[in-house]
Amino acid sequence: MSKSQTITEADVRHVAKLGRLRVSDDEVHHFTEQLAAVLEYISKLNELDVEGVEPMAHPLELVNVLRPDVERPGMATESALVNAPAKMPPYFKVPKVLGDGSGA
């Protein structure tokens, strides 16, 4: 997290890809500048010695919760499909996953 590790345009392209976002060259440039400024501020955390501190992922002491194994109605197919961008009831419809079919 030192200054030399400030986020680069290549990093931004990489995380955009991981996050399934398309970003134009202009956007990459702009986002890199903004994220670098935020990360530089975040690097303040390096001032602290956190050796031996237990990480805190959640405010509550959580235990796994199971509901009683009792049959109950689920969401109806029609309800699940109400917001579908494309559908062929009872299915959601999506583009071909395997390209144009000429080879997969």
């Binding site: 986020i7 995380v15 955009a16 976002l21 970003v23 903004q34 994220l35 935020v38």
Partner: peptide, 13 residues
């Protein structure tokens, strides 16, 4: 939203 998705993805990568 895009900035935060990218920042969070970066922090977890």
């Amino acid at each position: 939203v895009k900035r935060r998705i990218m920042l969070g993805t970066y922090a977890l990568s």
